[in-house]
Design a protein around this nucleic acid. Structure first.
Lengths: 344, 344
DNA sequence: TAGATAAATAAAATCGTTTAAAAATAGTAG
DNA sequence: CTACTATTTTTAAACGATTTTATTTATCTA
């Protein structure tokens, strides 16, 4: 009697001596169904706890109303928060969201996109993995006319819509802030060398040095892979230079946290010995001592813009790729406020 | 010519003058297909970039090999890390994972479970939302014989497998540690009053007070909803008591971070004026000044045990609910190390 | 009361795949 | 030449819904 397979429309139809189509219509409240019939159907459906099979629905409609989101990781505040914002906006528009983490691996990125594609997601929101260099998998999506929006971690050579910030400008302003506070020997703790946004920030860093006639020394740029161990190592190497910097720009808060931790253990004082400015403005920044100056990008806005651009593509044939550049704000905190300003 | 609809098996069959079943078999490398035929099929499939429709596959097989994971949020280190571990273990076993956040809302929890159920996930891994009191939605799953494993945030009255820690014992030991370090007026910053694990920890807290003959004052227990604002407010209320505590047990690092931030602004020194021990052992703990003592639960282990229990249910009919209790370790750091131990 | 119209239901096709059963083809032995 | 295998392919049903088309039944009009 209590068979373990879920109740289907056919079961209900059979029990009530109706056809499947009538039951289907009754369940969806379509107009041409006799009230009595509808009543009977709804009641039995409730009684048997009928649950529509989404797979079947999607198959026949060839629509899933689902967006695939590919992220490097969910353990970073930035990504998990943007995801929240994306989910909110997508839900509002009647779409649901499936998230995948690449764990910074190119191979995973390719595989996850493939999976979601086979699962018939209707569009993609992507932030590239650290290890991604080859962009074929993304361009294949574009060739198939599948809506794609890239955000934050983008790359050149992708003709897709993007939501980004002016990384060079943000880094320029952050570096300028260090300089204006008296720093003269500047170091940069960058991200992986193949990450476009890291390189753009590096450009902004250099630009600021040029503007203030400060020497740029390639040996003052170190690259971290974002892990704690590596970041600490790079930070210590930098401070072990013959002329260690008195101001550091780091490319992410995670790198900055590790850096501060490493320097503290070495007895190097922040900001007195070396000032630090970072990127992302994670909530943790304010909890640290000294609190960490960091470049804020509006996470809420980023999520909603990303979804907006994707919906545009989903809802109209052939829309052209668009780039939205959001503004950033440098949040100045203790880590870059020198007690004695060295310059006027 | 370039129709926008994806290539199907039928298209290939038609083009090669074969039947759909032959193409299907050829693509899956089944043995009874003539090598020449297979060759032709594979080649055309490649040329046309054929992608199998997972919906159709799942529908016909009535299997999705997908696990639904319901979490309160992904912005907490604890949950996003357990998720990572779950994904790893699930992948190993050939399952994929779909994550949903409830944002601590009961209604979302119900809705998300419903959605995943309709999408034919084969089992659930759940950590309950803060606001969840009614457990009908979970019990409905169990009645339908759908495999469910609860972890961390569980509740009484659910006959499902669980992976948890001995919260009472962990809190007892943490409190004992505070007492042994000389604290005599103890306060507790608990989670929401309806959260079982918070109450269990509170029990452990009381138990320790009893053991050491210290007075338990209900007015020394404050409940936070995990948000920063509320946590700060509760912490300040606690310290504004006529006899403020000299040692606080907080139920999560998030609460502790906010507490430390609030106390710092008030000029209250940690650990000298008040020592703090917390739960979760987020990486941020070590970055703070003072570094935060916290109870560690093995995240890796929790994820893999959760998946193990779920697989057990997925792979055998009628397995009985099982409870795995993992051990915890108190990580003692500066926030609870009093410079002058007040007792021997 | 025939004929037309409207209302309610049923039957059949469809989505893209898998699979069991049937059929076609080729090869081999008696 | 027939009968029997073995190999390969096709046919048809199925998964669980929606949707198009067809049919039945009831109601109305003239």
């Amino acid at each position: 009697m209590t068979k373990n397979t879920p109740v289907t429309i056919k079961d209900i139809a059979h029990a009530l001596n109706l056809s499947a189509s009538t039951v289907s219509r009754a369940l969806r409240g379509m107009p041409e169904i006799h009230p009595e019939t509808r009543q009977a159907v709804l009641q039995l459906a409730q009684e048997w706890d009928y649950q529509p099979n989404q797979l079947a629905k999607n198959l026949v409609k060839s629509r899933t109303r689902t967006i695939g989101v590919i992220l490097p990781t969910l353990s970073y505040y930035f990504f998990s928060s943007v995801l929240n914002s994306i989910e909110e906006a997508a839900m509002q528009a009647g779409y649901s969201v499936v998230v995948c983490q690449t764990n910074e691996s190119y191979l995973r990125e390719v595989a996850q996109i493939q999976n979601l594609l086979n699962s018939q997601v209707e569009g993609f929101i992507i932030s590239l993995a650290r290890d991604t260099q080859d962009l074929d998998h993304i361009n294949r999506l574009l060739r198939k006319q599948i809506p794609v929006v890239i955000f934050d971690r983008y790359a050149e050579g992708i003709e897709a819509s993007k939501v980004i910030v002016d990384n060079q400008l943000a880094a320029f302003k952050a570096t300028e802030h260090l300089i204006e506070n008296g720093c003269r020997r500047l170091g940069c703790l960058a991200g992986p060398p193949n990450l476009l946004i890291s390189n753009q920030r590096l450009e902004g860093f250099k630009e600021a040095l040029r503007k203030y006639d400060l020497p740029y020394n390639e040996r003052c740029v170190f690259h971290s892979d974002f892990t704690q161990e590596n970041s600490m190592m790079q930070a210590l190497s930098m401070m072990a230079l013959p002329e260690p910097p008195d101001g550091i720009l780091t490319m992410s808060d995670r790198i900055a946290f590790s850096t501060m931790y490493a320097l503290k253990q070495k007895g190097i004082r922040i900001p007195d010995d070396v000032a630090i400015v970072s990127f992302n403005n994670e909530p943790t920044c304010i909890y640290l001592s000294p609190s960490l100056s960091s470049v804020n990008q509006s996470i809420q806005e980023m999520g909603s813009q990303v979804v907006r651009l994707l919906l545009k593509q989903l809802e109209s044939e052939h829309s052209v790729p668009e780039t939205v550049t959001l503004s950033t704000q440098l949040m100045v905190r203790e880590s870059s406020m020198l007690s004695k300003k060295k310059v006027s």
